[in-house]
Design a protein around this nucleic acid. Sequence first.
DNA 1: GATGAATGAGGATTCATTCAT
DNA 2: CATGAATGAATCCTCATTCAT
Lengths: 228, 228, 228, 228
Amino acid sequence: MPLSKFICNAKTAVHAKRERRKEARPGELLEAALELFVEKGFAATRAEEVARLAGVSKGTLFLYFSSKEELFKAVVRENISGRFPEWNAEFAAFTGSTPDLLRYCLKVWWERVGATKASGITKLMTSEASNFPELAEFYRHEVIEPGHELIRRILQRGVDRGEFRSMDITCGVYTVMAPMMFLMTWKHSFGPCLGDGSVIDPEAFIAQQVDTLLHGICTSTAPPPPPQ
Amino acid sequence: MPLSKFICNAKTAVHAKRERRKEARPGELLEAALELFVEKGFAATRAEEVARLAGVSKGTLFLYFSSKEELFKAVVRENISGRFPEWNAEFAAFTGSTPDLLRYCLKVWWERVGATKASGITKLMTSEASNFPELAEFYRHEVIEPGHELIRRILQRGVDRGEFRSMDITCGVYTVMAPMMFLMTWKHSFGPCLGDGSVIDPEAFIAQQVDTLLHGICTSTAPPPPPQ
Amino acid sequence: MPLSKFICNAKTAVHAKRERRKEARPGELLEAALELFVEKGFAATRAEEVARLAGVSKGTLFLYFSSKEELFKAVVRENISGRFPEWNAEFAAFTGSTPDLLRYCLKVWWERVGATKASGITKLMTSEASNFPELAEFYRHEVIEPGHELIRRILQRGVDRGEFRSMDITCGVYTVMAPMMFLMTWKHSFGPCLGDGSVIDPEAFIAQQVDTLLHGICTSTAPPPPPQ
Amino acid sequence: MPLSKFICNAKTAVHAKRERRKEARPGELLEAALELFVEKGFAATRAEEVARLAGVSKGTLFLYFSSKEELFKAVVRENISGRFPEWNAEFAAFTGSTPDLLRYCLKVWWERVGATKASGITKLMTSEASNFPELAEFYRHEVIEPGHELIRRILQRGVDRGEFRSMDITCGVYTVMAPMMFLMTWKHSFGPCLGDGSVIDPEAFIAQQVDTLLHGICTSTAPPPPPQ
DNA sequence: GATGAATGAGGATTCATTCAT
DNA sequence: CATGAATGAATCCTCATTCAT
């Protein structure tokens, strides 16, 4: 191979690498921002830290995101995407009992969301929602509503199949959500700050929650007392 | 009226206006601080804003509270931790069944905390805990631990009296806490931002939660299935 | 004694006491201010501290001195008063040798100034002179010049009596002053901050200084080498 | 010129202006800080003033020095403590008589410190030591102790060589220091404020001081009288 | 006169954002 | 495009001074 070719190739290779890096930049920045926003909160995360963690300089961050707020918005958009179609399909195809479906649903939620960084986004949103109404609206539309719908369908399935007693489904949805929200909140706020005494075993907690929940809503259970 | 009384009154009258204001100041500042901390978060609330809302100047705030952190602690004491003795006594004096006690407990919690601005403090702490370790530690000691203890005692009472099946009390405590935390989180983050579709009726929600909970833990219920 | 008389007397007594206190106030404030200014410097001394130490309230201080600066000026004026006539007379009446006079002079300087709070004023002035030119001028006129004159007379006496070799008297004055200034500076700045290793025994130091000084300027000593 | 050198230069050229400024900044800031600290004192000098005098903004100062105290320390290091190694070496290499060494020492001290702004630092420290214990400690370690040691070595050299009579070296160190301290104090406090009558000719003063001093400590002199 | 509650200007420090290189 | 030096608005807290009581 003639030298000129080599040089040319080298040049191209350098260019290619740069290009790839250039295209990868926003993603690297988003990843770094997710990490830090979740760990320290929006206000306490400095733009420079994000840049450093992404391996670029402060200026570069503002080349890709016009402000820290825009970066935050992009982080949320990037990470709360369309996993719902997949989950909906997965749960729609479930053939077992609805109690088992609910157990399965919460189990995979923990594995795929609760235990991952994605859980930090929810906590982030609960902290910053009032400061970013536009984003909160986005979050409602992209995450909260699909999530509610998913749970609603499961509960309705149980009622329809006679496995659950009839209930106020909306209230039931929140009943299912509460322990998940609690777990995320705890994990990202008090958990790390407080001593070992306050540590929660998430999987045991979820299992116990489902059991408690089911024995309150299964038809096999004695009817609840009339509301006082 | 004896003369001494008169003199005393006269003396008091001289400073009446000033002193009344002086005595009222801390309360006015605490109220303003609660309002703003809950609305905008601890870090995002400027000391001067609190002072202005309380109708005084920046300097006056620091006359009564040596720092912003101390102001926050005072807000927590005023609205939460200072009330535990009363609550503990109230629940200790309860003579009815433990399920009724639990119902009563969550009901008054909602009335006295959940429905008031005080509920914002907990949400606030979940947002700021990681950035203000000293506050988190304070909150753990002043609020979380007494709160856990309170719930723990109620659950233990039920078990001791044979009203509840034996259980992992710690897990049970979190089970009781989760819906309360959820309600506070929702109310102060997504609730105000999201449309009417996401509004929760808190009293109905709590009532439903207790029913669900009780029918999972009452001994009158069929034993739960062995964990799969 | 009839009761009315007693009451009247009591009234008068109270009045008297108050009057006395009223007249004493400025003095008490000046004393407190001297104490604190010397200890902490002008800027670092808070007006309220001075008032507290004098046993009055913040407001009262400003009743007697229109500002902190005026207080400072008053402190200096109060304490650098006319002890010079007495000293001048004392040294003029001295009948012994001039070396002994010099020894005596520095000894009493230490006892009456160096070892007392008054030494702090000089240190204060060296610190604040540039910020209070008017006061510095006052100090020059009231303290520095009379002090120089006093030393000058002593040195001249020695020269006139043939006890000292002829010298540049002005230079000699500074030679005498330097160790005194040094002692005051050290005592009020590095001394208190530094460890025991830097402690100076003032009386030994002064004695040694005089000896060194005398053996350099006494005619009994071999003439100094011609300046190189 | 080899290509690599050229490329390197080219690279350098790109940032030349910026970098030259960047490298110059700390020095400019230190000079400005020295000027203002000496003129107005540490506490009374605002960080922004220093920045302005150096021609940069407030923020830039904190880019180079993490706090006002660190800036002060850097000023001290730059102007005093950093020079001890050089001085120690210079005096250790001196081959003449110890009286000549002492004369030389004080002469260069005046030229390199006393006559320059650096002399203001010592006066500064005497003013601020009590309010900034950390700075005082720093100064003791970085300046006072090395300075004492330097003088101590000179005096010991004289004693060892039989040029000085045996003495309390510590006391001797203070004897040498006193006129230097006096000169710095005078220059930066009363000197500028007072009229021409109080002006000291520093070089004559130092020469005279050394002469006086030497004739008190040289072995060629008659022994001092026993302390009375 | 005396008090001390209230004031608000002032200063150190941080950090998002800009822009010359 | 990428950099990082420079900026200056923003914020907590202090304390001399005022003034209603």
